[in-house]
Design a protein around this nucleic acid. Sequence first.
DNA 1: CTGAAAGCGCTTACAG
DNA 2: CTGAAAGCGCTTACAG
Lengths: 341, 341
Amino acid sequence: MRVTIKSIAEAVGVSRGTVDRALNNRSGINHEIAEKIKKTAEEMGYRPNLAAKALVKTKVVKKIGIILNSEGNEFFDEVKRGIEDSLQDLCEFGLEYEWRTMKGYDDKREEELMEELEGLGISGLVMTPINSERIIRKIHEFHKKNIKVVAINSDVLNTERIAYVGCKHKKSGTVAAGLFGLMSQGREETVAIVTGSKLNLALERRERGFVETIEKDYPNIRIVDILGNDDSDELSYEVTERLLKEYPNLDGLCFLGAGVSGGIKAVPSHRNANFKVVTFDLIEAVKKGLSNNLIAATILQEPYKQGFDGVQIMGKYLLFQQMPKNEKNYTELSIITKYSM
Amino acid sequence: MRVTIKSIAEAVGVSRGTVDRALNNRSGINHEIAEKIKKTAEEMGYRPNLAAKALVKTKVVKKIGIILNSEGNEFFDEVKRGIEDSLQDLCEFGLEYEWRTMKGYDDKREEELMEELEGLGISGLVMTPINSERIIRKIHEFHKKNIKVVAINSDVLNTERIAYVGCKHKKSGTVAAGLFGLMSQGREETVAIVTGSKLNLALERRERGFVETIEKDYPNIRIVDILGNDDSDELSYEVTERLLKEYPNLDGLCFLGAGVSGGIKAVPSHRNANFKVVTFDLIEAVKKGLSNNLIAATILQEPYKQGFDGVQIMGKYLLFQQMPKNEKNYTELSIITKYSM
DNA sequence: CTGAAAGCGCTTACAG
DNA sequence: CTGAAAGCGCTTACAG
């Protein structure tokens, strides 16, 4: 026989409403009785039926807000796919949603979007938070208004966001370094780094991971230069071309962030026989580069999962009041070559 | 206003029962009316509420069976974790389950387990099917009795299993080959292969992927030998030791399947400076090998996801009558080093 | 502080 | 072939 609110009510000799109050820690219930009910439920092995919970919730429709600073950044295409699939799932349980996207790292703009979504009555927000005082304050405000926040792709510390889904950025840099290490097989080599926007704090940590690992584990490899491309493909091309002219015997190049599409165009004319390019993520230009053997490998961080799980965590909270099992949900870092594409 | 069975019934001027019959293609309904109802539902943008569907299903509890040939095979630990998490999810919607595990590739034993679970009244079975006539027949029988089957980790073709979740085995071999290619950087090198049980057909395809890729894309690499270890760590040790004695200048070794734990023990004493070992999956011995720099990299196939998604697909079918979106659900192949562990 | 009743959206016997 | 009614397990006003 299944254990339900009803069977617990009968066992304890109270009404179903009272059992509900006790089990969900609602106010206005005699403490003693609440304890007794909880104990009995535990003993009887009660497991709430989520289908029933969710069905009740459809009376008042909840809305999830989404904010991504994804404009002009192909990386987020997969994140979006994950979000869309996840939302479709949740819509079948009666949730609604509202999307906003933006470009770059303008925290003022992101704050505006948060306010806009708040005005539309969201109960939860899944976002790529910009790491600034302004956004931290706003998340705190949302918390006090009981609008839950889930951070995806990059975290923002010391806030009340209920969960983070994304990779460990510093670690991602060590993976790239390790790959150059493997390919060098102990020979003396030189590599250069092209990084993206200086406003992207995650890239800073990735760079640190790369540099520290090379210094610590691969003394045979020397990093000759680190240049930024500001997430611009044009600038990326220029910077890369300059690098390759200046270091004609360079053995490798690592693109830490965006701008691969532009930067990779500068490679073919300059490369020596064993020139190795490593990138991050899997945008179209990277796929092409892998196919052409212009790029040796790229490092992924499960973008689809970041979107999918971020939204699922929010949905489970809103539909079933389930807090996420883990506050930090790190996605795996993996190396992809043309064969595993 | 939300579109429900009720609002459709009112719009068309029939009862809710009739709408249900039409929308779920049940028998005993006037064809014309069914068509009209479907059309109206479509126009009104009807989306069934899964919470309600699932709640009704709790009247008759459905049971999922699980069969894994996982005994003595550490690879399956992660698959199991995925299955367990997925089952826990589904139990909250009122599903039940029954587990069976077995060792190796004994199809007679697997058939027995299938019959045993059938006796316990399962409505669906998630399994690692052994690719044999006997199992194919049994899956066919299950199909006729309306017990759905989902294959995980390895597929069995020409059966009515509703979905497969697992990697492309041949492709997994090409990834390993590509990795040796990258590490060779064009130099002349020799590698050897240690494969697992000959009864594991997936390994055969993996081997083929490896060999064909080396031959096609890396003429600088020569495969000097291919030996089997029968999934036995003892044999794996012997075989590996023999290989390394016979080819003292060997540059690389690839373990295609199980037996890494035994085989890797033979490596330290023999290896030359640039000796590279590549393995598959991430059992404890591989983690240790990566940490020790004995193993350069290992190739993963998302075992957790294989278990999790396999069970989810079954659950969604049983709870909501949702057929899987895709029949074949390929998990990603990725290269992991000590830095991305 | 507690209980009785209605209702979330769907499906399932049952009667006709 | 069709409809009216009951019920899945939970939550939410409402009355007391």
